[in-house]
Design a protein around this nucleic acid. Sequence first.
DNA 1: TCAGAATTATTAACATGTTAAGGAAATGCT
DNA 2: AGCATTTCCTTAACATGTTAATAATTCTGA
Lengths: 145, 145
Amino acid sequence: MSPKLPSTSRSLPIALIRAREGVMSPIRDMLSETDITEQQWRVLRVLSEFGTLDTTTLADRSSLLFPSLTRIAATMRDKGLLTQTRDEVDRRRQLIEITAKGQKIIDDRTGQTTQIVADFKTRLGSENYETLLDLLALLDPGSHD
Amino acid sequence: MSPKLPSTSRSLPIALIRAREGVMSPIRDMLSETDITEQQWRVLRVLSEFGTLDTTTLADRSSLLFPSLTRIAATMRDKGLLTQTRDEVDRRRQLIEITAKGQKIIDDRTGQTTQIVADFKTRLGSENYETLLDLLALLDPGSHD
DNA sequence: TCAGAATTATTAACATGTTAAGGAAATGCT
DNA sequence: AGCATTTCCTTAACATGTTAATAATTCTGA
């Protein structure tokens, strides 16, 4: 008498994937005219907001796995979007910093990005928008719940 | 005087990624004792729910891109989890069906899966859980909004 | 009927996701 | 000091995400 599985149409994992698709779609459109990916954009955003970061913190804040970030950072370094320097105090650590070229990519798109966010807030309504962020935070494993 | 970008800590894309991590974590744990991935599990779930499907419909319902599904289906066919047959009416189409071996993987884990879903409902509260699914649906591009 | 357009699926190429193994530097303990 | 442990990062190997190009089949309209 095992209970039936929920329909995939009301499945949380699938709903999250589809929502992400919907949210990323306009951002992807914006980035299509550049040479950077969605993940590289995320790295730029985090570096721009927090300044120089070590790799571990950067991975955490941009929600990337370490091995992915290793490759992405190497690519971005080669493109001149960021610099990597070794921490002289703790020589295991690497410090990553955005370059002027990287910052310009963000600055040139601040208006577009702001508009995209505003559109989603309008679509959901401000209150729902905040509610959604709060509910999503409850599912975040990094929130120590 | 361009407006400031929102902090990445209240960013919808990042919140969605992290939430997905949290939701998939116990499912990933469950699957770690098997030889199938999270995406292969999703394909099995959809095939089990809807029966024989053509590739396009299967890709849509399991939220996978076509090229990904091509590879995943080939892998799963080699593992004996599904069968692929050509549609005799429209010979462009391919029909995919779950095998008994594939169905068994789901059946053996119905209890665990149900428990995982129940845990999330408890964590959020039933009402919040439904609210979350509704809000996520608003962001789904497939919902013709 | 038949050439052009649309549909269905595959393949290619590169970036990322994911887990496991490995390497270098710091830390802790004796 | 010296060795095991831990931390930080890289590399490897394979699966998937993503976009573009291609092939096979069907559809459409003159």
